[in-house]
Write a protein that binds this DNA or RNA. Structure first.
Lengths: 144, 144
DNA sequence: TAGCAATAGTTGCTAGAGCAACTATTTATG
DNA sequence: CATAAATAGTTGCTCTAGCAACTATTGCTA
């Protein structure tokens, strides 16, 4: 591993790519008046999958800070897409789940998301996808 | 390209990896009292390379919004690591360059950055690096 | 059982991201 | 030459990120 390799700012390329994706998603959300942000979507997606979970689990699933999750949930509650329910057996916990409107939002936005993912993966094979996954996993696990 | 492939949230993995890297960098900066953020570092690195450039060019080089660059520069000016100079031939432009203290900061932080990059690339080959670069480039260019 | 540590969540703070609206200047076009 | 269009940058706004400090509750342990 020679120096040019090490000094090459791969970090930057990751950041640039992610920003471009995020931007593209947000512009499409806005253009189709979906009235959500990309991160709000990520939470909705996870809530649809897991039905009823705590802030903590949601944070872990989304790789987000608990404080960030707390605030995004707050916005989603205001939009009446999500509701909170204090746990009865452990009164520290707060469960979160989609409202019927939240479920509708998921179903409404989902096709657009699939379409955008397809656009991103254009000209790439499943092997490429596996490679990317593998490399990112190694990097992730390299970092203490 | 079957559905599991398309629906797989690669976006999420990119985001998670980047956050982990960014976090690791920041923690090391803090632990060694470098007194900068990761994005402030990215600007310093670019200013060291390009000596004297405008906000606009800096934004393009770093894939950052001009407004964001403007604000980061402001913080760096407060820290006396960077100085601004209005252009004389085009009075809309503002040139930015490192102060001597800024150059010292670059030289002080640089070894730590190289070390951290090495950590991230542990167990990966130059081929992996090329693959990652290639795939991210394709994704980047797929997006309008 | 009393007291302390651990856990779940919230609030305050600083910083980065990006859009919209604005000023100031330069360039293009009539 | 005058006016419009384009460009560089700043400011205000909302949202996300993450740290520190805080409350409330639960679990552990002497």
């Amino acid at each position: 591993m020679h120096d040019t390799f090490v000094s090459n700012p791969s970090f930057f390329k990751l950041d640039a790519t992610l920003k471009k994706i995020r931007n593209y998603w947000q512009k499409n959300f806005d253009a189709q008046q979906k009235d959500i942000t990309v991160d709000q979507w990520l939470l909705i997606e996870n809530l649809y999958k897991h039905k009823r979970i705590t802030h903590n689990e949601l944070a872990r699933l989304t790789s987000k800070d608990i404080t960030t999750v707390s605030r995004i949930i707050e916005l989603l509650v205001k939009k009446e897409l999500v509701e909170r329910q204090g746990s009865t057996d452990d009164r520290r916990k707060v469960f979160v789940q989609l409202t019927p409107a939240g479920v509708n939002k998921y179903k409404d936005v989902r096709p657009l998301v699939l379409e955008m993912r397809k656009t991103g993966w254009n000209n790439l094979s499943e092997g490429d996808y596996n490679e990317l996954t593998r490399i990112l996993d190694v990097i992730y696990n390299n970092i203490p």
